[in-house]
C-alpha cells in the first residue's frame, strides 16, 4: 500500500516539474524534432545530469542499485526507430501524453488510446519478437564505464561538459 502512495507522490512531484518546464506541450516536443525549440533537450539533459551525479553518489555509498537495461541491438535499434516515428507523429511520449491531459491539452487522450492499442498489439507480437529481434545482437547489461573499463566519474563529467557546450550553443542560437 505504501508503495502505491510513494508512486503517486513521486508522480505528482515529477508531473509538477514537467509542467513548470513547459515540456508537456506538443509544440515543444515537435519543436525539438524540427530543431526549432530545444526546451525539451534542456530539461531532459539537466535532469539526466543531476540524476547521474546523485545516483552514482548513492551507488558509491552503497545506498542505491543501478537499473541497467540490456542492450539488444535488434530490439533497441528497431524499437528506437519505431518509437521515434511514433513520437514524431503523436507529439507526446507515454508519460507526457498523460501530463498533457492534466494541463488541459486533451488531444493526449488520442495518444493514450493509441498507446494502449500499441501495448496490446505488442503483447500479441511478443512470441514472434522473442524468436527474432529480442535475441539479435544481445550484448547484455553493458554500460559505457564498463565497456571502456574506466571509473564512472571519468565518464560523467565528459557528458556534462558536452551537454553544457550544447546548452551554450542553444542559448546563442536562441533555440
Amino acid at each position: 500500500m505504501s508503495q502505491l502512495l510513494y508512486g503517486l507522490i513521486t508522480g505528482i512531484l515529477f508531473g509538477f516539474f514537467l509542467q513548470r518546464g513547459k515540456v508537456l506541450r506538443y509544440d515543444q516536443q515537435i519543436g525539438a524534432l524540427r530543431l526549432m525549440d530545444m526546451t525539451i533537450l534542456k530539461f531532459m539533459l539537466t535532469a539526466i545530469f543531476v540524476g547521474a551525479i546523485g545516483i552514482y553518489l548513492l551507488y558509491d555509498l552503497g545506498a542505491a542499485k543501478l537499473s541497467i537495461k540490456p542492450t539488444i541491438l535488434g530490439a533497441t535499434v528497431v524499437g528506437g526507430l519505431l518509437f521515434g516515428i511514433g513520437w514524431g507523429v503523436l507529439g507526446y511520449c507515454p508519460g507526457t501524453s498523460i501530463g498533457a491531459i492534466g494541463e488541459g491539452r486533451w488531444d493526449g487522450v488520442w495518444g493514450v488510446l493509441g498507446m494502449l492499442a500499441g501495448a496490446a498489439l505488442y503483447a500479441e507480437a511478443y512470441p514472434l519478437m522473442k524468436k527474432s529481434l529480442l535475441i539479435w545482437g544481445d550484448l547484455g547489461k553493458i554500460t559505457l564505464p564498463g565497456v571502456l573499463n574506466v571509473n564512472h566519474w571519468l565518464i560523467i563529467p565528459v557528458f556534462i561538459l558536452l551537454g553544457v557546450g550544447m546548452f551554450i550553443f542553444f542559448e546563442k542560437k536562441n533555440l
Binding site: F83, L116, A119
Partner: peptide
C-alpha cells in the same frame, strides 16, 4: 502515432 510509439517502446 501512439500505437507505433508504444510498440517501439516495448
Amino acid at each position: 502515432g501512439g500505437t507505433v510509439a508504444m510498440f517501439g517502446a516495448r
